[in-house]
């Protein structure tokens, strides 16, 4: 038997997403990923598991890559979020996006935004990771299509592109 949920109170939040500040009143339980997808229409961030395994919902929050299915929108109040939609500048893809395209680092594309965000965060921390470091860093992102080999290559290619090679 469920317990009746009281009429949800709403809490005002201000969250900057991809450089634009948004003000909204949200339920305390609203997940950041649903705020991004349903409130803002930024549907590039995906939900694949609900239990924080798959990483399809990875975004940046205040410079850190996080799983937005495990963060409440109210926890992001006052924060800065970058999603997959905020990576490319005009028609210029981010080097990580370019790397994934060139090395066939995606097939169905569902895990890809999260995978790109996590790879981006890895390269921010470690601009020249070894294969082992890449595989370790991406443990929180699951892909069912590629078997990861071309994702590793994509990150290596992105590292080259970021280094201007």
């Amino acid at each position: 038997m469920g317990i009746p949920v009281p009429m949800a109170t709403r809490i005002p939040v201000r969250i900057t997403v991809n450089g634009v500040e948004y003000a909204a009143e949200v339920e305390p339980r609203l997940l950041l990923v649903h705020f991004l997808r349903d409130n803002l229409g930024l549907t590039g961030t995906h939900v694949g598991c609900d239990t924080s395994q798959c990483g399809a919902c990875t975004v940046y929050l205040n410079g850190q890559s996080i799983k937005s299915c495990t963060v409440l929108a109210v926890q992001a109040n006052g924060g800065e979020v970058t999603t997959i939609e905020g990576l490319a500048v005009g028609n210029d893809y981010d080097p990580v996006q370019q790397g994934f395209w060139e090395m066939h680092g995606l097939q169905c594309g569902y895990c890809t935004p999260g995978m790109i965000m996590s790879s981006h965060a890895l390269l921010d921390r470690n601009p020249n990771p070894s294969e082992e470091e890449i595989r370790h860093a991406l443990e929180g992102n699951l892909c069912r299509c590629t078997g990861y080999q071309n994702i590793v290559k994509a990150v290596q290619r992105a590292a080259e592109l970021r280094a201007g090679k």
């Binding site: 997808r37 590039g44 395209w101 066939h104 995606l106 594309g109 569902y110």
Partner: peptide
């Protein structure tokens, strides 16, 4: 080994999946 036509939308978050 041509790069895929479908990728630009998928690497930018512009894919159109059911829940979108």
């Amino acid at each position: 080994p041509l790069k895929r036509k479908e990728d630009p939308r998928l690497i930018t978050g512009a894919g159109n999946f059911l829940d979108d």
